[in-house]
Every structure is written in C-alpha cells, then in structure tokens.
Simulated scan of single mutants.
Amino acid sequence: MIRNLFSSAILKSALGASALLLSTTSAHAVVSTFATFTSLNSSKNISLVNAGPSGIGATVYSTSTDTATSAGVSKVQFSFIQPGISTYINNVVADFTLNANITKPLTEVDGTFTQPVFSGTMTFLSTTAITFVGADSITQTLAAGSNLLTLNFNAKISGDEFGSTATFGASTAAHNYNITYTSDFLDFSSVINKDFSTSFTALTPALTKAANGSLDSFRATIGGQFSSDPAPLIVSTVPEPASWALMVTGFMMLGVALRQRRSTTVAAA
C-alpha cells in the first residue's frame, strides 16, 4: 500500500512538472488577459483626495459608498477568463479594496494629464467559498475570504483636463513600473511581464489640476482587467520539494514503525 501511495505521488509530481515545463517553454511575448472586474452598480466607489495647497500629492482609495470620506471595501463582480478556471469563477461577488499614494506633481502635454502613482495595493477577496479543479485535476474548495487576486504596484493615471474619464494602470514592460500578482487560485511563478488597465468613469468633478501640482480631488467608478505574459497557471496541489522531503521522511518512519511492530509480534509469539 505504501509503495502504491508513493508511486502515485511520484506520478502526480511528474505530471505537474511536465505541465510546468511545457508552460515555461512556450513562446512568450503573448500578453493574455486572465481576469476582469466591474462595479456592481453605478455608485462611485473610488475617491482621490488631494493633499491640499500645503501638502504634496494625493491619496486614492476605495470606498464602501459614494459619500464615504474614508477608505473602505467595495463590492465588485470579479471573473477569471483564463480557460480551465473561468468556469468556476465567473462574475462572482468580491470584496475590493484599493489604496494608493501620489507623491509627485503631474505632467501636462497638450491638455492631457499624466499623474505618477508612487505605490499602491489592490485586493479582491471572495465573499463565498469557491470550489474549483486544480491543475492536477484534484477538486479544491477555498473558504470565503480567499485571495482571488492581489497586486502591489506603481502606476499612473492619465486623462484629459476637464474630462469625465481617466485611465489607471501600468505595465512592467515599460521602464520604472513594477507589479506583483498573488492569488490562491493562480500561480504566477513563470510570468515574465505583467500589466493592468482600469478605468475611472463618471468623474465628479471633472479632471483638473490642484494648486499643489497634482490631480485635484474627485470621485469615480472603477472597472478593468489584468494581464500577463505568459498566462499564469492554475494552482496545483502537487507537493513542493520541502513537502516531498517531509513525505519521504514520513514514509521512512512508518516503515521503521512497521518493522518494529513485526519484530515485537514475532518475539511475543
């Protein structure tokens, strides 16, 4: 029985390693959109608050209502559109949070603003338990509150002066931009480039420049998408090397215990 279990584990590991090898040796330079999100309604769930004439920059954060004056959690619809997992996570309700800092003035070219965003974090957490099939064809269930997607980044906000929309995003293919993705559902270890593109819509008031040189305060509704090159992998339950070491040690200890038990039984007889 032990031999069968061990052989099965080795087979699963080999299959997982083969899948990983195939994924990492495939052609790159093909950016794949793997997830999208939209606001549940038209309420404004993003607030940009300028630091004022005596300060520098601004802060950007999600809000629970369109009148909230502090950072909060917003409900959004989140979908993985990657084959193999899109069936299980499609338009699910997620708890969305955004927190970002602006520490520099914007630049203006022909009436178009580009506002650097020094740092930020965006998180999507499941509001219900989600059952899906992992890369090794084993069914997994992750509890409510699991990390659908989290990204840490620096980015930029771009839009026309007095406009009612703006774009917010970045790409690691460009200089000086860094993005890290983590998820309980996808593995990004083989990803080379990452980007995200979101839209601020229905800006109130319209996009303007404040006295301190950064974007002036506004509220907006957000939605967008996340991409990578190559596409991430669906998480696998194949043991990591450290887990393999523990497993082998456990098998050895079990073998020793069985031998001792057999010797004790023979001696008693």
Rank of each mutant, 00 (worst) to 15 (best):
A100Q: 01
D136K: 14
I138M: 14
G120S: 09
N147I: 04
N101A: 15
P116T: 10
F96N: 13
A129S: 13
T128Q: 09
G111Y: 01
T121N: 06
P105N: 09
V117H: 08
T139N: 07
G111D: 08
A135P: 08
N99T: 15
T141Y: 01
T127G: 15
L106R: 11
I138A: 15
T103P: 07
S146Y: 04
P116C: 06
N147Q: 12
F124L: 04
S126P: 01
L149H: 03
A100W: 00
T123S: 07
Q140M: 12
N101R: 13
T127P: 07
L125N: 04
N152I: 08
A100P: 01
V93I: 11
A135G: 12
T114R: 05
N99S: 13
A94R: 03
V109E: 03
A94Q: 03
A94D: 04
A135V: 13
S137R: 11
F153C: 09
I102V: 15
V109H: 02
K104V: 12
L98S: 01
M122H: 00
A143M: 02
F118R: 11
A143Q: 12
A143V: 10
V92F: 04
L148P: 00
N101C: 14
T128L: 07
V117F: 10
T114E: 07
A135S: 13
N101T: 15
F132R: 09
A129Q: 11
F113H: 02
D95C: 04
A135Q: 10
T128K: 12
L98G: 00
T141A: 04
F132G: 12
L148E: 01
S126C: 02
T114L: 06
D110N: 07
L98E: 00
D110E: 09
T131V: 03
F132M: 09
L98H: 00
V133C: 05
L149E: 02
N147T: 08
V133A: 06
N152D: 07
P116N: 05
T139W: 06
S137W: 08
F124S: 01
V117I: 14
N91Y: 13
L142S: 09
T150C: 00
D110H: 02
I130K: 02
G120T: 06
V133P: 03
A129I: 12
T103F: 10
T128A: 11
T114V: 09
F132A: 11
A129D: 14
T150H: 00
T114S: 08
T107N: 15
F153D: 03
L149K: 03
T131K: 01
T131W: 01
G145R: 02
F113L: 06
D136S: 15
F124V: 03
G134C: 13
A94V: 03
A94M: 03
N101F: 14
S119K: 13
N99E: 12
K104T: 14
G134T: 15
T128Y: 06
I130A: 04
S126D: 03
A135F: 08
T114Y: 04
T97S: 07
E108V: 14
T150L: 00
L151D: 02
N91V: 11
T127A: 08
S126R: 02
T103I: 09
G120K: 06
Q115V: 10
V117L: 12
F96Y: 14
T121A: 05
S119Y: 07
G134N: 15
N152S: 13
G120Q: 04
E108R: 11
F118M: 12
K104G: 09
D110M: 04
A94G: 05
L98F: 00
S137G: 11
N147W: 09
F132K: 08
F118P: 09
S137Y: 12
A135D: 10
V109T: 07
